[in-house]
């Protein structure tokens, strides 16, 4: 771990800290209802549910909402969008899981200017305005496999602050300038951590790590096999069960494909972007009717190639953080881990 000076906060003081923050920021905390965990706005009297585990929907929607106005228009003007302006208010995302915060760094590489020089002001503004407080996982879920794709239950990627749940208190480390400022301005409810706090945190992290399935997937091998076996009929077999819905892509924290369309009424309207999915036939269909990925087989292969080959080649990253949402919620149990295993033999 870094030489950052850590601090602790008693859990009963968390609402005070969050209330302080909510005076100048919109604060989101994990909440559970009907067995579904989601990030909801913190209000007076709320307590973050730190036992709630992974949220059903990934928090990517904070930066890349399912529907977003790019701009409003009438026949004569193109106005900057309201959502772009609303993003001016700073946001604190509290208790994001390490896999999800790691996904933010992957999304940065798509929406940020390092991607061929094009800015995405909608994404970037929201991202710049947000402080990510990541909560290390003491009890990874049975479908979690972050360690197999370069992540860690106490991973710091994409996090401004890393927190560990030490039962009655949290141990916190500021990782970025933003994160350190966050801790500094909340000094009154924080205590300097003892050396033992850090040791306990380390112990929790390593036992969480050990509870995860062994890493059985080698990035380079999988990439090579995927590339070499692009035309392998195994893809047809893998696709057999797939029903061609977009659940995996919509739940995935790194999937970022979108559509742009117009909504118009009485000569006024807005241009919006919405999530889209490579699993849909319409996604690549030309106006002529020709479709470069005409069947589910090509479309499913695209999803895997994109995550485990194409992005490795283009930006040296695997676009999977091992959160396991697609494993858990695929309607037909098409398991990404099994597909990786299929392409793991040397």
């Amino acid at each position: 771990m870094s030489d950052t000076v850590g601090c602790t906060i008693e859990k009963k003081l968390l609402p005070t800290l969050l209330l302080n923050e909510s005076k100048h920021s919109r604060v989101f905390i994990p909440k559970q209802s009907d067995g579904v965990t989601e990030y909801a706005v913190f209000g007076k009297g709320d307590t973050p549910d730190l036992e709630a585990g992974q949220s059903r929907l990934s928090p990517k929607s904070f930066f890349f909402p399912q529907t977003e106005t790019l701009y409003a228009f009438d026949y004569d003007t193109i106005e900057p969008s309201a959502s772009e302006e609303a993003a001016e208010a700073p946001v604190v995302l509290f208790a994001v899981r390490p896999c999800d915060s790691a996904s933010f760094e992957l999304l940065d590489q798509v929406f940020g200017p390092e991607n061929h020089g094009y800015h995405d002001p909608y994404y970037e503004k929201k991202r710049d305005n947000t402080i990510v407080v990541t909560l290390a996982c003491n009890k990874p879920g049975s479908t979690c496999f972050c360690t197999s794709v370069g992540g860690d239950p106490a991973g710091t990627r994409g996090a401004d602050v890393l927190a560990f749940d030490l039962e009655d208190r949290l141990y916190l480390e500021g990782l970025t300038t933003k994160g350190k400022e966050f801790l500094a301005r909340n000094g009154e409810v924080l205590k300097e951590a003892a050396e033992t706090d850090r040791e306990v945190a380390n112990t929790l992290a390593s036992s969480a790590r050990e509870s995860m399935p062994a890493v059985e997937y080698d990035r380079a091998t999988v990439k090579k096999n995927l590339d070499d076996q692009f035309d392998n009929p195994i893809w047809e077999k893998i696709t057999n069960t797939c029903i061609g819905c977009g659940a995996c892509t919509y739940l995935c924290p790194t999937c970022h494909c979108f559509d742009i369309c117009d909504e118009e009424r009485h000569y006024k309207g807005r241009r919006i972007r919405t999530w889209d999915s490579c699993q849909y036939a319409q996604f690549t269909k030309h106006a002529s009717g020709h479709n470069p990925r005409p069947t589910k087989t090509e479309r499913l292969r695209q999803r895997f190639m994109h995550k485990f080959s194409y992005t490795v080649e283009s930006v040296d990253e695997v676009y999977c953080v091992g959160c396991g949402r697609c494993v858990r919620y695929c309607p037909v149990n098409l398991d990404i881990r099994e597909v990786l295993r299929e392409f793991s033999s040397t």
Partner: peptide, 24 residues
């Protein structure tokens, strides 16, 4: 090449041919 495109700036993810985006 021609492929279906939306954003034209390498972000929306639909015009790829392997690791290359037709748009950028």
């Amino acid at each position: 090449l021609e492929n279906r495109m939306k954003c034209g700036i390498g972000k929306c993810g639909r015009c790829n041919v392997g690791p290359k985006y037709v748009c950028v």
